Computed example of a mutant assay.
Amino acid sequence: MTSFSAKIAETRAGARPVVFVVYPDIVLLDLVGPLQVFSHAPDPQTKTNGYACAVVSLNGGMVTTNTVVPIPSEPVSRYLDAEIHTLVVVGGDGANTAMHDTHVLDMVNALAERAQRVCSVCSGALVLAAAGLLNGRRAVTHWDDCATLETGFPEVKVEIDPIYIKDGNVWTSAGITAGIDMALAVVAEDLGRRSALRVARSMVTHMARAGGQSQFSPVLRRQLLDSTGRFEELHHWVADNLCQDLRVEELAAKMNMSARNFARLYTGQMGLTPAKAVEAIRIEVAQDLLETSGKTVKQIAAQCGFNDEERMRRAFMRTLSVSPTDYRRGFRAQGIPKPH
Results as ranks from 00 to 15, higher is better:
residue 6 A to D: 13
residue 7 K to T: 12
residue 9 A to S: 14
residue 10 E to M: 13
residue 10 E to N: 14
residue 11 T to E: 04
residue 12 R to Q: 07
residue 12 R to K: 09
residue 13 A to M: 03
residue 13 A to G: 01
residue 15 A to E: 01
residue 15 A to R: 01
residue 17 P to Y: 06
residue 19 V to Q: 09
residue 19 V to I: 14
residue 19 V to S: 11
residue 19 V to N: 09
residue 20 F to C: 10
residue 21 V to G: 11
residue 21 V to R: 05
residue 21 V to N: 10
residue 22 V to F: 08
residue 22 V to C: 08
residue 23 Y to W: 12
residue 23 Y to R: 12
residue 25 D to I: 10
residue 29 L to V: 05
residue 29 L to R: 00
residue 29 L to G: 01
residue 31 L to Q: 01
residue 32 V to Y: 04
residue 32 V to W: 00
residue 32 V to R: 01
residue 33 G to R: 00
residue 35 L to I: 02
residue 35 L to D: 01
residue 36 Q to A: 14
residue 37 V to E: 10
residue 37 V to Q: 06
residue 38 F to T: 07
residue 39 S to G: 11
residue 40 H to E: 15
residue 40 H to I: 15
residue 41 A to I: 10
residue 42 P to C: 10
residue 44 P to M: 06
residue 45 Q to M: 09
residue 45 Q to T: 11
residue 46 T to W: 02
residue 47 K to L: 12
residue 47 K to M: 10
residue 48 T to K: 15
residue 48 T to C: 13
residue 49 N to E: 14
residue 50 G to E: 13
residue 50 G to K: 12
residue 52 A to T: 08
residue 52 A to I: 05
residue 53 C to R: 08
residue 53 C to G: 09
residue 54 A to D: 12
residue 54 A to L: 11
residue 56 V to C: 08
residue 57 S to C: 04
residue 61 G to D: 03
residue 61 G to H: 08
residue 61 G to F: 05
residue 63 V to L: 04
residue 63 V to R: 05
residue 63 V to N: 00
residue 65 T to L: 12
residue 66 N to C: 14
residue 66 N to R: 15
residue 67 T to N: 15
residue 67 T to M: 14
residue 67 T to H: 15
residue 67 T to P: 14
residue 69 V to A: 13
residue 69 V to N: 15
residue 70 P to R: 07
residue 72 P to T: 00
residue 72 P to M: 00
residue 73 S to G: 02
residue 75 P to K: 10
residue 75 P to Y: 09
residue 76 V to E: 05
residue 78 R to V: 10
residue 78 R to H: 14
residue 80 L to I: 10
residue 80 L to H: 04
residue 80 L to K: 06
residue 81 D to V: 03
residue 81 D to T: 06
residue 81 D to G: 02
residue 81 D to L: 03
residue 83 E to I: 02
residue 83 E to G: 06
residue 87 L to T: 05
residue 89 V to G: 00
residue 89 V to M: 06
residue 90 V to C: 07
residue 90 V to L: 01
residue 91 G to T: 06
residue 92 G to P: 03
residue 94 G to T: 03
residue 95 A to L: 10
residue 95 A to H: 09
residue 96 N to C: 14
residue 97 T to R: 15
residue 99 M to W: 00
residue 100 H to L: 14
residue 103 H to G: 11
residue 106 D to S: 14
residue 107 M to I: 13
residue 110 A to F: 11
